[in-house]
């Protein structure tokens, strides 16, 4: 039972990271119906920005995270403008292929510029402490990850529910044409969506740096895919769904590697994905909509 609770603690912090990344997938999908394959790689860029902010500028972890969020927000807007906007009226397959292209580009341009080797995230920026709570070991990094992720999600909820920008985002995702007629700038709203999603991914990137302590140019692929699965699990396009999905994936993964084979750890995500897609493609909280004939 104690071990089980320990796995839950581990799973919650990992799940918080997945949830943050999943939010970006789901927001972008909700608004332009695109699986932004490059999202995981934006997270990787965020991790690197955080890394350099700490090692070269000597900032603390919070500043590093904010810097990463800011730069990646810009990167996200840029990606959308350059690669996705020209394709807004073409087929979804074309957009998906472009997204794969952007993903590969971010990965390998990083390899070309910074080298393929992995880097160790500086320990000094975040000295690890362990707390003992009724037999459970809770690391301060777990608390940090969990608390900052939840904080960011609360801010996101506020933006979406209470601000004009959030209202515009919801309007565009419901009906783009109607939103245009209501005087909402679709381009601007999509840019904001990419900015917010990418900023969340960047925060997740810095968290992964803190959590796993190493970063490399291809680190975005697997967490990206898992977060995508989380988004699908919760019902892609649905923000609360992405949060729940992220936590479920985190818990599932720690359970499988805790009780099963760690070699199968990555296969779990794919297995879950296939099961959902085949049984309930709209996810746990999604509504079913058929094609109009």
């Amino acid at each position: 039972m104690l071990e089980f609770s320990q796995q839950i603690v581990n799973g919650l912090s990992l799940g918080a990271i997945y949830a943050l990344i999943a939010l970006g997938y789901t927001m972008v999908y909700g608004i332009i119906k695109l699986i932004n394959f490059a999202h995981g790689d934006v997270m990787m860029v965020g991790a690197y920005v955080g890394f350099f902010s700490i090692t070269m500028l000597g900032t603390n972890i919070v500043v590093a995270m904010l810097a990463a969020m800011l730069l990646c927000a810009l990167l996200g807007v840029l990606i959308e403008k350059v690669a996705y906007r020209p394709l807004r009226n073409s087929t979804r397959i074309a957009a998906l292929i472009t997204a794969i292209g952007v993903s590969l580009f971010l990965e390998y341009i990083t390899v070309v510029v910074l080298g393929p080797a992995q880097r160790v995230f500086p320990q000094s920026a975040f000295p690890i402490k362990a707390y003992n709570l009724a037999g459970l070991t809770i690391l301060n990094k777990q608390i940090f990850v969990f608390v900052s992720a939840v904080l960011l999600m609360l801010i996101l909820q506020y933006i979406i529910k209470r601000t004009k920008t959030g209202k515009a985002m919801r309007a565009v995702s419901l009906d783009m044409e109607a939103a245009v007629l209501m005087g909402i700038s679709v381009d601007k709203t999509i840019s904001v969506t990419f900015a917010i999603g990418s900023a969340l991914a960047a925060a997740a990137g810095v968290m992964i740096g803190v959590y796993y302590q190493t970063i490399n140019p291809l680190m975005g692929i697997i967490p990206g895919l898992k977060a995508f699965v989380a988004a699908v699990l919760g019902g892609i396009g649905l923000i609360p769904g992405a949060m729940v999905g992220g936590f479920v994936m985190g818990l599932l993964e720690t359970m499988v590697s805790g009780y099963g084979s760690s070699l199968y750890r990555d296969a779990v995500a794919f297995g879950v994905l296939i099961i959902i897609l085949l049984i309930r493609p709209t996810g746990l909280f999604g509504k079913n909509t058929g094609e109009k004939v």
């Binding site: 690669a83 020209p86 394709l87 073409s90 087929t91 074309a94 957009a95 292929i97 472009t98 794969i100 292209g101 952007v102 993903s103 590969l104 580009f105 990965e107 390998y108 341009i109 390899v111 070309v112 393929p116």
Partner: peptide, 20 residues
Amino acid sequence: AAMRMVIYSLILIIVMIYRP
């Protein structure tokens, strides 16, 4: 090898935008 992948990725993006 890494440069090759960069070129691949650019091919994907450019072909899709300019000659889908």
